[in-house]
Amino acid sequence: MTDRSISSVTAQFSTGPQAPRSPQALARQLRPLLPSEAFQTSPTRLALVPINLAILVLGWHMASQLDRWPLPSLLIWLPIAVLMGNSVMVLGFLAHDLMHGRGPRQRTLRRLAGLLGFSMLWMTPTLWQAVHNREHHSHTNGLQDPDRSYLASQPNSWGKRLFHWIAPSSEVNPLVLALGMTSAWPLHHFRTTCAVLLFNSTKTGFTPASFRVRPAERRAIGLELAAVASIHLLVISWIGLQPIQLLLGYFLPLWIGYAMAMAYIYTNHVLNPLTEDNDPLLSSLSLQVPAWIDLLHCNFSHHSEHHVFPGLNSNYYPLVRQLLLRHHGDRFNLMGAAEAWRLMLATPRFYRDAGHLISADGAVLVPVPLAPAAP
């Protein structure tokens, strides 16, 4: 698909010349309506990093003793593993916020906190700033976005085949989807890391969209990845190599954390049309979840709000949501999590063009669920 074909389809999505569409234009409109403290760093967010690390450390210590637990009592471990998995996810969310500048101004401290926060996700601060802050936020759900779904016209690479196999869609096997939720994040990270470290080219064929990083960034990514691998090796050596300890104490919490994170991440953009306008209200979806979940997960459900104000204190995203509903309620995509998942499981996952999804065999063609109606 060419840039011209994308532009020709997305032209119908325009809401008029007076409507702010870019993140910068929306931010300029809404910023005066937000309190000044919404744009200040939040030290309390930094404090959540050691708290969740402590939960993991305590869990790993308990896991190292699992060989002494009577077999029936291992059922008690499941809620502990869920709590640890939640900490894996929350640490990733916190690192995401910190890398957007919502943390200490000292660059070294911020990157160290980001490294610790991302470590259980096998992500590194430098790679995250490149793939997420720079590429994804600049080209959200466009042809150059490395986080978008694949195009039907793209080569049938190993990355595309695995994505089709495990991503939520009308074609996915339910059992494979359940297992795939635990591996979707590692797959995304593995393919992105391979593309950058092994090739560092704009023509990498196994990613949805490839990009280059500077030589200094590439070296930093390699060094940070070695540090992350060292952390995982330390955890494994502490827990022990016995099968029960390794499975329940290391793999299970990570799988739960990855699955919980992907339950959010899948909904962020896959139901939205492709667009080259970088309009966060067209390219993103926000979720409605219970207030206690938003409190526990740092308002990560507020995704369109995040694309308008990436560096905002996330405590103020509910206020941004109110403003978007008031000023752009006709364009703001807001949906319950259950409904978003119902739509994902009812539609194919490849883009035929900006406004249509198509099955892998080409037999099913449907409009993108969140594409606005033509005027």
Rank of each mutant, 00 (worst) to 15 (best):
S210M: 10
A216F: 08
A220K: 14
T192A: 10
E217F: 00
E224P: 08
R214N: 08
F206K: 03
F211V: 07
I221D: 06
V213Q: 11
V196A: 05
L223S: 13
A227W: 00
N200P: 14
T202L: 13
E224M: 12
L225A: 13
A220L: 15
R219P: 09
S210E: 01
G205V: 05
N200C: 07
A195C: 05
V228N: 08
T202F: 12
R212K: 15
P215M: 02
T207H: 03
R214Y: 07
F206C: 01
T193V: 00
L198V: 06
A195F: 07
L198G: 07
T204M: 12
T207Y: 06
A226K: 02
A216T: 04
R218A: 09
A195R: 12
E217W: 00
S230Q: 03
P208R: 05
S201L: 01
F211K: 13
R214K: 10
L197H: 00
F206V: 03
P208K: 03
C194E: 12
F211H: 14
T193D: 02
V196W: 05
E224I: 14
T207A: 06
V213F: 09
L197W: 03
T192W: 13
A216P: 05
F211G: 10
V213P: 06
F211L: 13
S201G: 04
G222I: 03
R218D: 10
T207N: 08
A195I: 06
G222M: 02
L225T: 13
S201K: 09
A195S: 13
R214G: 09
A226E: 00
L197K: 06
K203A: 05
A226L: 04
A227F: 00
R212H: 14
K203S: 07
T202K: 15
P208M: 11
L198I: 02
A195L: 06
S230G: 07
A209F: 07
A227C: 03
L198C: 08
L197N: 01
A227D: 00
S230I: 05
R214M: 10
P208Q: 09
V196C: 04
T204E: 09
E224A: 13
F206Y: 07
V213K: 06
V213M: 07
R212S: 15
F211D: 10
F206M: 00
F199G: 09
R219Y: 08
T193G: 01
L225Q: 12
F199A: 14
F199C: 13
T192F: 13
A209R: 03
S210P: 12
K203P: 02
R214F: 09
T192H: 14
A227H: 00
G222L: 02
A209P: 00
S230C: 05
A195E: 10
V213C: 10
V196F: 11
L225N: 11
V196L: 11
S201D: 04
A220N: 08
T207V: 13
A220R: 15
N200G: 06
R214W: 08
A227N: 01
L198E: 01
A209I: 04
A195N: 08
P208D: 09
A216D: 12
L197R: 05
G222R: 02
A209Y: 01
V228D: 10
E217C: 02
N200S: 11
S201T: 08
N200Y: 06
T204R: 15
T202M: 14
V228L: 07
R214A: 12
P215C: 00
